[in-house]
Design a protein around this nucleic acid. Structure first.
Lengths: 237, 237
DNA sequence: ACAGCCGATTGACTCAGATCAAATTTGAGT
DNA sequence: ACTCAAATTTGATCTGAGTCAATCGGCTGT
């Protein structure tokens, strides 16, 4: 979906009340740096389904997710889609070598990002190795996750994929909402399918099967883990 | 396979004649830094099939591949294997956050690496943002490749996987051997299968099919692209 | 409340790729 | 050259997940 109404807040001192101040790239900055830093970014809002950036575009900005969930994906020429990840508050997007984004990103529900112009952000990093080190850490963590996901895509069965996804997603929500057996799933079944390398029908059938086995309960906007241990057993193979 | 005979050359001034001096992480260092740097590393040889490091191990070293090919892989508890990449001369291995390697690496044929103790390497980086920037670049490039590979694993057919692999491998060999329609494949069929998320039988059948179609020729230790354009068409989907 | 729409579920059937099972080729060691 | 083991190829069959095709259910707007 194309962006329709994008709201940009006026610049100002807003890092103070930023939810991800301690989590994101910002965590590597001291108070003085943070004051300087906040003038570089501006908060931008996106509505549900709006595209924040797309694959083929020249990179002009970096993004720090503040609120909401985004799907990150690549498309094949014939329309097949692979979701390479979901971005949550605290995630940092826009790093690349080619000068182009190598995936597209759109909002799942309402999203707020902190957007930085590429040039001024790069200049800011220049003499702050601490920030560069932080960004490097984030890249290495993502690389590790990407490798785990390759194993899932290449070598796991549909049941294992779904079980692993539910546990992994629950884990990602821990820092945002605390650990809970009730897992909200803001993304569609199609999104889950495209993340796991399955079809929507297989995802749906697997959910139903798990529910009939009494392992999960499908609730509005998510699932509830009735028997986490059994889900873990399914995921482990 | 366990390491049997690992030959370690005595330390010394060897960066001068290092094949990857201009390519690897070293390319970010000036002559003076390189002189200091070479005292940190030592060349280590591994025989065919030997394990350089494994997944669960605590990381004690970083590695710069000098000669040969390595397979990088993860295993599931039941033995299923996913190869997450192949390492070639110039590749840098060992970055991680957890303090543990998150994949295993073994030699395909004879391999020489430049091995750095983690502690001294980290200290050397400390006040050399240039080197950190270089390492960050390498991480970002790998991340981009990892995402491409996710698309392949999750959304491409066996034919597309094999065709994409042949072209991608040929491309990786360009910087080492120049562009050629003759592509050497040092890894086994099983390795290729585990890289593409297929079985050895499917890889073998696909090779044979491509050969019967006159698109490739299976030669000793590799293949020859008889009709590169047609392989590209198969890969693009 | 109702109509219409979109996402999700369910069922019937198909098929790409896996599995099982031999050959066949290759290669290292004698 | 000869033997044995391992890697690869080939064939026959099976099956997990995909495809095609209806429903079903939950919102939205009237």
């Amino acid at each position: 979906m194309k962006p329709s109404v994008v709201t940009i807040e006026p610049n100002g001192h807003f890092c103070d009340d930023c939810a991800v101040r301690g989590a994101a790239v910002c965590s590597s900055l001291d108070a003085a740096e943070l004051r300087e830093f906040e003038h570089l970014g501006r908060r931008v809002h996106f509505g549900s389904g709006e595209t924040v950036f797309s694959e083929e575009e020249i990179t002009t900005s970096f993004y720090n997710v503040l609120e909401g969930v985004m799907r990150l994906y690549k498309l094949l020429p014939d329309g097949r889609r692979q979701i390479v990840g979901f971005a949550l508050p605290g995630d940092f997007l826009g790093m690349n070598l080619s000068g182009r984004h190598n995936f597209s990103a759109d909002a799942i529900g309402a999203v707020t990002v902190c957007q930085f112009a590429k040039a001024s952000f790069s200049r800011f990093i220049e003499d702050r190795p601490q920030l560069l080190r932080r960004i490097n850490e984030l890249a290495i963590r993502e690389l590790s996750q990407a490798r785990d996901h390759m194993v899932l895509l290449g070598r796991r069965s549909a049941d294992e994929k779904v079980a692993t996804f539910l546990l992994g997603w629950r884990e990602r929500l821990v820092t945002l909402k605390g650990l809970s057996d009730t897992v909200s799933l803001p993304m569609s079944r199609q999104d889950i399918a495209d993340y796991l390398g399955l079809t929507i029908e297989t995802v749906s059938r697997t959910f139903t099967k798990l529910e009939r086995q009494g392992v999960i309960e499908i609730i509005h906007g998510g699932i509830s883990l009735l028997d986490p241990a059994r889900v873990e057993a399914m995921a482990a193979a």
